[in-house]
Design a protein around this nucleic acid. Structure first.
Lengths: 224, 224
DNA sequence: ATCCTTTTTTAGGCAAGACTAAATTCGGCC
DNA sequence: GGCCGAATTTAGTCTTGCCTAAAAAAGGAT
């Protein structure tokens, strides 16, 4: 009964975990979008996840799913794998921060507990991946993370970058090129009310940058 | 047409490569044994491999298969992955030499060219894995390897361990415990004619070891 | 309350890769 | 030359995970 942990299953659980963080539960359509799969496929898989022993999700028709404790545990294991791998690729193998996500996506399903443990040791039990996302601890506690997004800051406010959504490699390259990486400090110079563009001066950078809301919604910060 | 490189396909090619080294070609039954799969399944897969474009094996009914150039190239890529990974796990992540094979078996199908390149760099373009097996070069040349097996040495001959078959973790632990690892020097002390037991004194070890033919056939050496 | 759009489900299919059981072919031996 | 046993192939199924198209259910707006 435990061998139902296919790669596909793991991907579903990860997606459901993420969606639940934002919306409380995950709808069929949302899951289908995230995984780039037909909605009908999701229904099928979700039914399977709900009827394993133990069940990994709670499923109500037309109301989407929530992870059970068992499901959440597995999701956190995979996320720990993923984020440790990202950091490992970055720190030890010299990957840039826009390259790590794709490679980690494939490796996360395949590494053993031993591998996980070893890279955690090599990295000194790190708490954050290269994009600033928190890494679940060994006993699968998820540390809290910044939720204030850059779009909400106003002129003259200062802050530090906490994390950046890791989905788009090109965006990451762009941001990296302007010094916008976790821990960087900055000051908001200007803000245009209608289109919401922010002008940012990043400490240590010559030129200020102008960022649209498409971008500033992907960046999470702490006020200083 | 190139996406036919499933994990299963890669495993078949690897197995066929190995068998061809020893026997010139690979029979259905042999492949089935190596992969722990029913012979009928092998026939099916082998037909597929022979009818792709380009074909990866040459197949004649009832006479087994040989790799084509294309098939061999892929096999060597996988073997390079595997052996680089083994060494990486051993050197960088502190795995013991009996643990690396299983982990590498899963990772080899999943890592990118970039990953391969990076670990090769970190390891300084190594030529041999922890069991002494040669690692194909970047342009997929397979270095030659020792073929003289320990069972063929006679009393008073001296030599050095070159490589050890990596299939059985327990054997590897046993041998490692007695200092029998690649590059170790030794002297053959005695040999019993009927059962073929060898008594070995390994340089740097207190106690000599007695090894049966089941073991001495798995160890390859160079005379000194 | 009903209509309409969105979401979900049903139903039917496909591709990989494995299996079993039943045929067939090969190779050696008399 | 014919027979036997081992090796191989054929034929037919199963499972997983995905797909599409079309039916059905929810839920919001009027």
């Amino acid at each position: 009964m435990r061998d139902l942990l296919t790669h596909a299953v793991e991907d579903y659980l990860k997606a459901i975990y993420d969606l639940s963080l934002n919306f409380g539960r995950a709808s069929t359509t949302q899951i289908a979008e995230v995984l780039d799969v037909a909605p009908a496929s999701v229904t099928g898989m979700v039914k399977k996840l709900a009827s394993t022993n133990p069940p990994l999700v709670e499923y109500q028709k037309h109301r989407g799913v929530v992870l059970t404790q068992d499901g959440e545990k597995i999701a956190l294991e995979i996320i720990r794998h993923h984020r440790l791998l990202e950091l490992f690729l970055h720190e030890t193998l010299g990957y840039s921060w826009d390259e790590v996500d794709a490679e980690a996506d494939r490796l996360e399903h395949v590494i053993s507990d031993k591998f996980e443990q070893r890279i955690a040791e090599v990295l000194g039990d790190p708490t954050h991946d290269p994009h600033g996302d928190p890494i679940p601890t060994r006993d699968l506690e998820m540390p809290s993370h910044a939720t204030l997004c850059l779009a909400h800051l106003r002129p003259d406010e200062r802050g530090s970058i906490q994390r950046v959504r890791d989905t788009d490699p090109e965006l990451l390259r762009y941001l990296g090129g302007h010094g916008i990486v976790p821990q960087a400090s900055f000051t908001v110079m200007g803000y245009t009310p209608f289109d919401g563009n922010l002008t940012l001066r990043v400490n240590g950078q010559e030129e200020p940058v102008v960022l649209g809301t498409r971008i500033t919604q992907q960046i999470f910060v702490e006020r200083e």
